[in-house]
Every structure is written in structure tokens, then in C-alpha cells.
Nucleic acid binder design. Structure first.
Length: 361
DNA sequence: AAGTACATCAACCGCTTGATG
DNA sequence: CCATCAAGCGGTTGATGTACT
């Protein structure tokens, strides 16, 4: 048998939380904890709320050390980089930003960061960026010193993306291996196909690593389908990362050392068909599972390209979209590895060139 | 000043996953 | 092994405030 239903849906209150409700919930949890059972909690404290709703309210607003608004440049960088690499896995992204909730980051991304990346700023009264009261942040909730509500706070300046300075003391995303390690640690998901093989990349299964490689190194040196992953890594000068010009399709971007070149050459048709047309065909028609996280870039870029606009691909290299999609089309070996490499290079590119993303500033 | 459009964000909805009986 | 449910998660919605015309 299963468990009892979580709550009587007909008798629970919906909508915004009142200060009194917040006080009840906060006071109880401060004194007794959640008790590991959110469903029973509202009944215990006399709240006509669903346990789910209590949990959400606590996690997003009432628990200590929650930060709202005022995202820093570094936080912007982290969000952008992780979104580009792992997509909309907000809980994972939030885990990298202490005090931030997945809901907050999700809202921030959807309402501000995404537009910023696309260069879609709000219209301003004049071209000189006259300060307006738009962008003021409003929220309800408790402050750190009590239960006072504050509806409107001073507008934080629109954060400007800057590269995170690299430091030898604090190695970050400054090399291929560290980026890869981060992605793997985060459970990097590079293809929705063949999750088992992806798991093999994430889990330290020594059967998949070359003998004689230490564990830490093994994390970044998995042997994928008997092909050492480094053999799938395009050398840096083979990846046109810094080239903002849409690529032609007759130039292979990956040199699969020791592997079958036909894997990629078979995917990349050596014709003079336009990039946008081919990209659209591959993504829209041949690849129903469009690469996670790139849809809006693709849509926007393609719309603009199709309108005859000279598209500035900015921080997004169309190779990523195309190569990843093309890889997805191929069900042969190595596709996750290729996608992983693309993800790694996207992160690296983003970290190194975030200032280039200030389109429309 | 009024109406409209847009931006923001709290909260809800519904799906997935893992635990439980 | 299966059915059921709690928890967690991401997507979406609706209320509200602000900017614009």
C-alpha cells in the first residue's frame, strides 16, 4: 500500500503568503525543524496550506541567508556559463551560488540575463540610457532582522558581465581539465540519448579508464567506448572558437585523431549550402531533440539571419549549435564525447569572452 | 490623467525520481 | 514487483508595479 494523500486540495489556501502565515511557519521551523515531513507540517501549526506550498515558501523566502536581487557580475558569469553548459538545471546552478534559490535564478535568467545575452535591453527614453525607475525589484518576504515586508527596493544596477579574473591560487575555469571536471562533477548531461553511456562518463568506473591513470586524472580521462577521450578532443587551433563568422560546412572542425573521420565528415555535407539553411534543416528536421539550452539562441539568430540581418553571433559560436546537433544526429560512438567537448569549450569561451556578451549595452 | 504594454517575481502546476509498503 | 506517495524540480501563470503613449 502507498501513503496517505498529502493534503485536502479543496481546503488549502492558495496565493500570496501573509506575514502571519510566514511568522507561523518560520517560528515553528526555527524551533522544531521541518521534521522531515512537509505534508504533515501545515496541520501541526494550523496553516491552511499545502505542504508543498510550505516547503516552497521556506526554501525560497523564509530560510536563513537567502539573498534576493542584486546579482553580482560573478554570479552572472556563473549562471551564464552553467546555463550554456548544462541548460536549465536551476537547482544545480543554484547550488553553486550560496544564498540563491533555483526559483530566483530561473526568474532572473528568464527576465534579465537571457535578454542581456541577446542584446535585448529594455527600451529607454533616450539613446543615452537615461536612468528610469524600471528595473526596480519588488518582493515580499522577511528581512534578516524580522518579519517586515518590503515591496520595493532600490534598483540594482544592471550587472555588467566581466571576465572572471584567473588566478593560479584559485584555479577556476581556466583550463580544459578544470572545466571538464566541473561539468562532470555537476553531472554534465550532454545528450539525452544513451544516458547510460553518459553516466559512465560521470561515475568513476575504472573499467572505463586507462590503466595507470590516477583517480583525479581518471575523472578527466575516461575511455569512452574504448576510444580515449583525448583522441576526440579537437586541438585548440582546430576549433574556430574566436571566429564569429558563421562557418562554412566544408571545413571540418573536429579532427578525430585515431578515429574514423567519416563520423564527422559524413555528417557535415561538403556542399556550399548556406549555413543557416543547413543548420535549420539539421536542428529542426533531422534532430527532433534539439540541443538543450540552445533553442533561444538558435531561434533568435536564425530569425535575424533570415531577415537578412548581419547576425553578430556574439558569445555563441554557431559551430556549437551545428556541431552538437550534427553529433546528436549521429547515433554512432563518440557523440557524447563530442558534445562534452563542445560544452567544455562553450564554458571556456564564455569565461574568457564574457565581456563580448554585453551586446547592446 | 488614463489606457496600454511590458517587466518582474511569487506561487502554482505537473512531471520525474526515489522511497515506502 | 508493483502501486502509491513525498520530495524535488523546471515550466508556466497571474498579480502587481512601472514605463510609455
Amino acid at each position: 500500500m502507498g501513503r496517505a494523500p498529502c493534503c485536502d486540495k479543496a481546503n488549502v489556501k492558495k496565493g500570496p503568503w501573509s506575514p502571519e502565515e510566514d511568522a507561523k511557519l518560520k517560528t515553528y521551523i526555527d524551533q522544531h525543524g521541518t521534521g522531515g515531513n512537509w505534508i504533515a507540517l501545515p496541520q501541526k501549526i494550523g496553516l491552511k496550506r499545502c505542504g508543498k506550498s510550505c516547503r516552497l515558501r521556506w526554501l525560497n523566502y523564509l530560510r536563513p541567508n537567502i539573498k534576493h536581487g542584486g546579482f553580482s557580475e560573478e554570479e552572472d558569469n556563473i549562471i551564464c556559463s552553467l546555463y550554456i553548459s548544462i541548460g536549465s538545471r536551476w537547482s544545480i546552478i543554484a547550488a553553486q551560488l550560496p544564498g540563491r534559490t533555483d526559483n530566483d535564478i530561473k526568474n532572473y535568467w528568464n527576465t534579465r540575463l537571457k535578454k542581456k545575452l541577446l542584446g535585448k535591453q529594455r527600451k529607454e527614453k533616450n539613446g543615452r540610457g537615461k536612468e528610469t525607475s524600471k528595473g526596480k525589484q519588488k518582493y515580499s518576504g522577511v528581512t534578516t532582522d524580522g518579519l517586515s515586508y518590503q515591496r520595493v527596493v532600490a534598483p540594482p544596477p544592471l550587472p555588467v558581465l566581466q571576465p572572471i579574473p584567473y588566478s593560479d591560487d584559485e584555479p577556476r575555469f581556466n583550463n580544459h581539465a578544470s572545466i571538464r571536471r566541473l561539468l562532470i562533477k555537476l553531472g554534465g548531461k550532454f545528450s539525452t540519448e544513451n544516458q547510460e553511456n553518459v553516466d559512465n562518463l560521470i561515475k568513476p568506473n575504472h573499467d572505463h579508464y586507462e590503466a595507470g591513470v590516477d583517480h583525479d586524472q581518471a575523472l578527466v580521462q575516461p575511455v569512452y567506448n574504448n576510444i580515449p577521450i583525448d583522441h576526440l578532443i579537437p586541438s585548440s587551433d582546430q576549433i574556430p572558437l574566436l571566429n564569429s563568422t558563421p562557418p562554412t560546412l566544408n571545413s571540418p572542425h573536429f579532427d578525430l585523431v585515431g578515429t574514423d573521420h567519416h563520423i564527422m565528415s559524413g555528417i557535415l555535407p561538403r556542399t556550399s549550402v548556406s549555413f543557416s539553411t543547413e543548420l535549420e534543416r539539421v536542428i529542426m528536421y533531422e534532430n527532433p531533440q534539439r540541443l538543450q539550452g540552445l533553442e533561444f539562441f538558435y531561434d533568435d539568430m536564425m530569425n535575424r539571419a533570415n531577415c537578412g540581418e548581419n547576425v553578430d553571433w556574439g558569445g555563441m559560436n554557431p559551430n556549437w549549435v551545428f556541431a552538437a546537433s550534427a553529433s546528436n544526429c549521429n547515433q554512432g560512438f563518440g557523440q557524447e564525447s563530442i558534445l562534452e567537448e563542445i560544452a567544455v569549450d562553450k564554458v571556456r569561451y564564455t569565461m574568457e569572452h564574457n565581456s563580448d556578451l554585453n551586446v547592446g549595452k
